[in-house]
């Protein structure tokens, strides 16, 4: 069992943060890698990008959004509870880690985070900050209430640009609009790293391709084992098929086939929805979902 040293609700009923004791993961993980977590014996194996780590305290921080049955179960976990399984670090570290610091210092780096993607962007920005490189960060959220980790990000980012789709906080519009605005102001970058919903990453890549700005994306496809065995996470990058769990999760965004990747995330949508409803409503669910037959 893997103890939860701290459980925090970041967004009411939706986004949760857990600081977990996991010595083996904390000792060897790097920004960009992920873990696989299981709440209990019946839970799915859920891949989650590492959001922070503390080698001395032997902890890993993960941020979870409730979207299905297994993440719904995580919602009720409190400080002092434990996950039944927690394995990692999985996937390859961010390319930044292997780039000489001097080289990084000469680069203008832009991070573009959307929604929950803010969490996995954070350790990369923090790592750069600790190595004397200040990167600019754009964080987009649907609305003010869904914005996470603003203070933490502020502390490690060069300049932090926040935008909300509905204009309820700071700038108004999508993250792509911020990129356009920055370029219109005469700013220029050498490298962009974007993490967020696939649809957002797709549009960021379409824009940065036009701007001739090299862009790295972190893909979050469906996974089962996460160790290079099942092939569920395969995606097309350029001319070849890659496995996100061992070849990624980070890829050259201009080569990723996003339309195929987005389509593949839909495979289990119906089954997942059904399981989520069951977990949420338990025995009180008597139909209306269109799947369970309770309303017939």
């Amino acid at each position: 069992m893997y103890s939860i040293l701290e459980a925090k609700e970041l967004v009411a009923d939706s986004i949760y943060e857990f600081v977990v004791k996991a010595p083996n993961v904390a000792a060897n993980c790097e920004p960009g890698q992920f873990v696989i977590v299981r709440t209990d014996e019946d839970s799915e194996r859920i891949p989650l990008t590492i959001c922070d780590y503390d080698r001395e305290k032997e902890t890993i921080t993960i941020v979870v959004q409730v979207i299905g049955a297994s993440t719904f179960k995580m919602k009720s976990l409190k400080t002092g509870d434990a996950f039944s399984d927690f394995v990692g670090p999985l996937g390859r570290p961010s390319e930044l880690i292997d780039t000489p610091i001097d080289e990084l210092k000469q680069k203008k780096i832009l991070f573009v985070a959307g929604g929950l993607g803010t969490a996995p962007v954070y350790p990369q920005v923090k790592w750069l900050h600790e190595h004397g490189v200040d990167a600019d960060v754009i964080v987009g959220a649907k609305t003010k209430d869904l914005l996470i980790m603003e203070e933490e990000m502020e502390a490690v980012a060069g300049t932090l640009y926040i935008t909300t789709d509905d204009g309820s906080y700071k700038r108004q519009g999508m993250v792509t609009k911020v990129i356009e605005d920055l370029y219109a102001e005469g700013k220029k970058y050498d490298l962009c790293i974007t993490i967020g919903p696939m649809i957002m990453m797709k549009f960021v890549c379409l824009l940065t391709k036009k701007l001739e700005l090299k862009t790295i994306v972190s893909m979050n496809p469906i996974m089962v084992d996460g160790t290079g065995m099942c092939g569920a996470c395969r995606l097309t990058v350029g001319d070849s098929v890659k496995f996100a769990c061992v070849d990624g999760p980070e890829f050259d965004g201009h080569l990723v086939n996003f339309d195929e990747a987005m389509k593949r995330t839909q495979i289990y949508k119906t089954a997942e929805g059904r399981a989520y409803l069951k977990a949420k409503e338990g025995d009180t669910h008597h139909g209306g979902c269109g799947h369970c037959g309770g309303d017939k």
Binding site: M229, C230, V241, K263, R264, I267
Partner: peptide
């Protein structure tokens, strides 16, 4: 082969 509904036997 990447269509929805194609699985490896492993998966």
């Amino acid at each position: 082969e990447n269509a929805n509904g194609v699985f490896s036997a492993n998966e």
